[in-house]
Amino acid sequence: MARLNVNGKDHTANVDPETPILWVLRETLGLTGTKYGCGIASCGACTVHVDGEAVRACAVRVSAVEGKKIVTIEGLSPDGSHPVQKAWVALDVPQCGFCQPGMIMAVAALLKQKPKPTDADIDANLTNICRCGTYVRVRAAIHAAAKA
């Protein structure tokens, strides 16, 4: 049995405490916006916020987040109105979109730390993989969101 707080709600999940939170979110709680891409903390598709910090959910056991607050893409804003989401729509960033929830969560956390990131900040901090290759628009949308 694991207890966790996701998007402001408390849940108990009948899972092995060793289970990565990625799979608890996706399979137990039905929050499939958080994606599986690699399972080894390499691609960032599973990025969520744990107590406000970007975390790769495939590499964190559910037992490690007890008492902490998890926010997923579904909880970033009630209606897609987070500045990052708005910038993403305005610039038509996504292609297939599969990496984008993780990308958006990583960027939202980055902007909290660095509200006006430089290109160098973006390069140093954003390591999520996008195989469709949306990086040009991701960068432009980060700057747009920072201005918003």
């Binding site: 499939t32 916006g33 958080t34 579904e74 993403w88 979109g97």
Partner: peptide, 14 residues
């Protein structure tokens, strides 16, 4: 098809 892709609503095969 953009909006659902930024809110996590888009359903993929997985």
């Amino acid at each position: 098809d953009t909006v659902d892709k930024v809110t996590g609503k888009q359903i993929y095969g997985m």
